[in-house]
């Protein structure tokens, strides 16, 4: 299997879906002639032209709203936010229009769009560019929220997201775009709402999504080598819909849980999962559910400090040792 970058895996997903469905259009700031601010859409404009790959002005509310309107007529826009942080200026369009129009029309309308882009801290770009809004968006019934930790998952999930008939918020990560993994040349799809066990273990479940999965995997390695603790790593991949069965199955197996997520702790995705585990698997737990989140302050610029603000393998290890 070819070893390719995460961004290239996404690029393949776009190319394949553009070729498969004439209604798929990529749009966003710098996605066409500039090849994408993070080169995720490299070469696609050259190959597919103005109609399928569209540069927009810097008007997030405008072009996201435009994409939603077009989707009501059956177009399937895949809209890039250069940073998911910029969703804040398009919140009305995302929440009220994409998220609510199906419900408020009594099911007469659906909105088959994908909004995608990086949603992460860790690159020293300051608080306004470093939000992780998956918990904000997953709180809205009507929206779907997906994250991918690897290129393999990114491609399969993106293709499914584009074919989905509901609005899908797809969270990527600038720190992962250059990560390589094996991606098959044959077509494959990954369903939304299916978690993936990235590492089997017996003593503790590390439940994570996005880049936090890689943090959890690093921690799991050290836990095994240095502390004789066998950690299982569950990658949620999709926040809403959520694979509740996979979470509970892992808890029933290990009886101890540490949730790892790059959200700030208050109302984080991990807080929701923690509550779910308490409600549905209370008797299975041999210890309190632990959480490792980003430190609860705006994302700091300081290159020296920012890496410490995100969950680190060390913090995960420390938390695991507290609950085990």
């Amino acid at each position: 299997m070819p070893l390719i970058e995460y961004r290239e895996a996404l690029n393949q997903a776009f190319a394949e879906e553009i070729e498969r469905d004439p209604n798929v259009v990529l749009m966003g700031e710098e996605v066409a002639q500039y090849d994408g601010a993070y080169k995720v859409t490299r070469g696609l404009w050259k190959k597919y032209g103005d109609k399928r790959v569209v540069d927009t002005p810097i008007s997030e509310a405008g072009f996201i709203g435009m994409g939603i309107g077009a989707s009501m007529l059956g177009i399937r826009p895949v809209i890039e936010l250069m940073f998911w942080s910029f969703a804040a200026v398009a919140y009305d369009q995302i929440i009220n229009n994409a998220g609510q129009i199906r419900y408020m029309s009594g099911g007469l309308i659906n909105c088959p769009i994908v909004i995608r882009g990086p949603a992460n801290g860790g690159t020293n770009v300051g608080a306004t560019h470093s939000h992780t809004p998956e918990s904000w968006l997953a709180a809205i019934p009507g929206l779907k929220v997906v994250t991918a930790a690897t290129g393999y998952d990114a491609k399969g999930l993106m293709k499914t997201a584009i074919r989905d008939n509901d609005p899908v918020m797809f969270m990527e990560n600038t720190l992962l775009y250059g990560e390589k993994c094996e991606v098959p040349t044959e077509e494959y799809l990954i369903p939304l709402g299916k978690a993936d066990c990235k590492r089997e273990g017996t003593d503790v479940s590390l439940i994570a999504y996005g880049r936090a999965v890689l943090t959890a995997l690093k921690a799991a390695k050290t836990l095994e080598a240095e502390h004789d603790i066998s950690a299982e790593v569950i990658d949620l991949r999709s926040i809403r819909p959520l694979d509740e069965d996979a979470i509970l199955e892992s808890v029933r197996k290990t009886h101890r849980v540490v949730l790892v997520d790059e959200n700030k702790p208050f109302c984080a995705v991990s807080a929701q999962i923690s509550s779910l585990i308490m409600e549905k698997a209370f008797d299975e737990l041999d210890g309190p559910v632990g959480r490792v989140c980003s430190l609860d302050a705006p994302a700091i610029y300081s290159p020296a400090l920012e890496p410490l603000q995100l969950p680190t393998p060390d913090r995960v290890i420390k938390k695991v040792r507290e609950v085990c």
Binding site: G62, M66, I68, S71
Partner: peptide, 12 residues
């Protein structure tokens, strides 16, 4: 809020 949606209808 409907003004970008109207634009999107025209786009479609």
């Amino acid at each position: 809020g409907q003004t970008p949606l109207g634009l999107g209808l025209a786009y479609g």
